[in-house]
Nucleic acid binder design. Structure first.
Lengths: 213, 213
DNA sequence: ACTTAATTGGGAAAAATTTCACAGATAGCA
DNA sequence: TGCTATCTGTGAAATTTTTCCCAATTAAGT
């Protein structure tokens, strides 16, 4: 079998850091910077130069010894690694406070994510429009996904309903979920979940605040 | 030097998992469950039983061999470890879409965090009230922190202004920052920052979506 | 052309984290 | 009481992640 892509498994932390690199590289490019060394990139991301080089080395050789990296070239490479060479379509489930904030979060669009549709169970919200997106009845999500093969969902619903809607989404072909509900979602192996848990983050801070005293 | 508290450094990941345990223990207690084993708790949090036991073992012995853990007792223990035995006061910086969503995010209050004040630079927003909290002029934050020794800030401002306001906050005694701006904040060693970076999470999903194809 | 300084890529070592494996403790039951 | 099931806590082993280190490469200066 002509195995193309690298076999080795890349850790989630490595990918997170690539995302940081991409962010800084984008800034550097905007600022007109042409080249950067691993140690400068490390400085910007609060990491180490070896970490930067090791992370990149998993995907190929992008630098020039003695010179460093060409900003725009490395930026494109990292974009490709992260699968951002094309716009990524997402849907939003849950149009409460958080969901609505996500709808109007400018960074999403700027960074190449496009919210194609929003769904909610609350009939009072259905039909409202924000940022060009109309909020649809959650009952329609199945139908929507049959036509529009969106693979990523932002899940901003209460914890008690999160698992049920997740099961539906997965059945309809959703493969990635950015979960804001404070609950551990059960999904098949092929589905990837990232959790954004604000309480958790605050509790981590709380712990370190206490131990620092 | 008479070193008091435990010497061993606990990793951030360990603390994150404690937060998960606390969440599940709280649910279990509400459901009237009296006891739980490490493997059941692992099942609920999608971890392993040894991981659960190892995490807890850093802080003491909370279980009974052959029996497991008493839910309410373990819950209280974890709450104390995380410093949640008292209400944690926080301030909010930035009352844009995200900031306003945070203000009305019910989970904060439910989980023992209290937003004491909110600040913004936009004069049109100043004076508005949501959820009992009035939005104040960012110029007043220094004055506020002189009287009210809040240690935790939620930072929901644009990236370009995040570092400047961070410097001010740190000068005024803020020791923990939950940062929503897509930027690496520079802070002194004694200040702890947690980052919530939605684009980063989406990029991680994007990567795994691509590699799964 | 030669020397010096800067920088990458990657093997090897070190450190951190997770998992294994089991002694010891507890409860239930015959 | 004695036997069996279960389950914790924790050293040791395994694995993963990070850091160290240096040969090789490049650019710049003389």
């Amino acid at each position: 079998m002509p195995q193309t892509s690298s076999k080795k498994k890349i850790s989630r932390n490595t990918i997170s850091r690539l995302s940081l690199y991409l962010r800084e590289l984008t800034r550097l490019e905007q600022d007109g910077k042409k080249a950067i060394s691993s140690s400068d990139l490390a400085e910007l991301t609060d990491l180490t130069d070896t970490q930067v080089r090791k992370d990149l080395s998993h995907f190929g050789q992008f630098g020039i010894s003695g010179t460093g990296y060409e900003v725009s070239k490395l930026k494109e490479a990292v974009r490709n690694i992260l699968g951002k060479d094309k716009v990524l379509d997402v849907i939003l489930i849950g149009a409460g406070n958080l969901g609505m904030a996500l709808l109007s979060y400018p960074a999403f669009r700027e960074q190449g994510f496009s919210i194609k549709a929003a769904f909610d169970i609350d009939t009072r919200k259905i039909g409202n429009k924000t940022s060009e997106i109309e909020i649809c009845d959650i009952e329609k999500v199945q139908e929507f996904l049959k036509k529009d093969k969106v693979k990523i969902a932002l899940l901003a619903v209460p914890a008690f309903s999160a698992q049920k809607i997740t099961d539906t989404l997965v059945n309809c072909g959703i493969r990635c979920i950015l979960n804001f509900a404070p609950i551990v979602l059960r999904v098949p192996d092929e589905v990837v979940v990232s959790n954004v848990d604000l309480s958790k983050e605050l509790e981590v801070l709380s712990y370190f605040l206490r131990t620092a005293e």
